[in-house]
Simulated scan of single mutants.
Amino acid sequence: MFVASTVCFLVFMYVTLVACSADREPECSRFHYEEQLLEKMVRMEFNVERIQQRLDSVSESCAKLDDSTRLTEEVKDQVGSVYTRWGRNTCPTGSSFIYDGFVVGSHYTHTGSGANYLCLSKEPRWANGSPTASDVGLIYGAEYETSSANILTHFHNNEVPCAACRSRGPTIMIPGRNICFEGWKLEYHGYLMTSYQSHAGSKEFICVDSEATVAEGSNPGNQDEALLFFVKAVCGSLKCPPYDGNKLITCAVCSQTK
């Protein structure tokens, strides 16, 4: 009887121990799972902080890049390039106006004085004391000489205006074209003009606007001083084609956009 009771007790204790072990196992597994979940959440929070730091760094770099780009544009706007618009007293859209005036040059019969045309301000300012001299170079107002042409004939003998303008980029005058090359913006186009071929005083070639006007206060009276004639090509060393000895040479003033 005692042995039977003992065996039954031992069996009971064994079953109880097994049952307790089975009951504790899920508790142990659940604790381990929660511990791992907490660890993952901590790691995730750490990674989020690192990502946020990187995002802040990228945002700061983008802001600096924006500031640099804006500064570059401001510097570009401040630098630009200055050119003369011959034949007009205003500047094209997109260019800044500096001043306007009258086209002048040396007399067409003189061999001395300057060889270039100037855009002389129409608002002169004189030095104190009115300094003067007797041996000097001379400048004269320029006139359109267009009576033999089939364009701008109504401007013949009228004085020529001009304007000093500033573009946002470098500028170039392209003779022989009335449009710009790729990457360049057209400021204005027109015709090459200079002094007459057999006149004593040689002048530079300038690009006179195709939509030219006359100078303020101009009159069609014949002064014959500094003169502007259209230009043609002479075939020979200059190949025809592509040039044509019967056509007026065009020109374009272009500013760089890239």
Rank of each mutant, 00 (worst) to 15 (best):
G94F: 02
H107S: 09
H107T: 05
D100K: 08
S95M: 05
V75M: 12
T84L: 07
K76W: 10
G94W: 01
T69I: 15
T90C: 03
Y83T: 04
T84I: 14
Y83W: 11
D100F: 04
T69E: 15
T72I: 15
G101W: 00
P92H: 03
K76N: 15
V75Y: 13
T111A: 12
S106C: 12
R70W: 14
V104F: 04
S95Q: 07
T84V: 14
A115P: 05
V75R: 07
I98F: 06
R85V: 11
S106I: 03
R88T: 07
D77P: 00
R85M: 08
T109P: 01
V79T: 12
T93F: 07
N89Y: 06
D77M: 09
S113T: 11
D67A: 13
T69F: 15
S113K: 05
P92W: 05
R85F: 08
I98M: 09
G87V: 06
Y108T: 07
D66S: 11
K76G: 14
V79K: 05
D77K: 02
W86N: 05
V104H: 00
D100I: 00
G80P: 03
G105P: 00
V75Q: 12
I98N: 07
G80V: 02
C119I: 00
T111E: 12
S68G: 11
S106Y: 03
D67F: 11
S68N: 12
T84R: 04
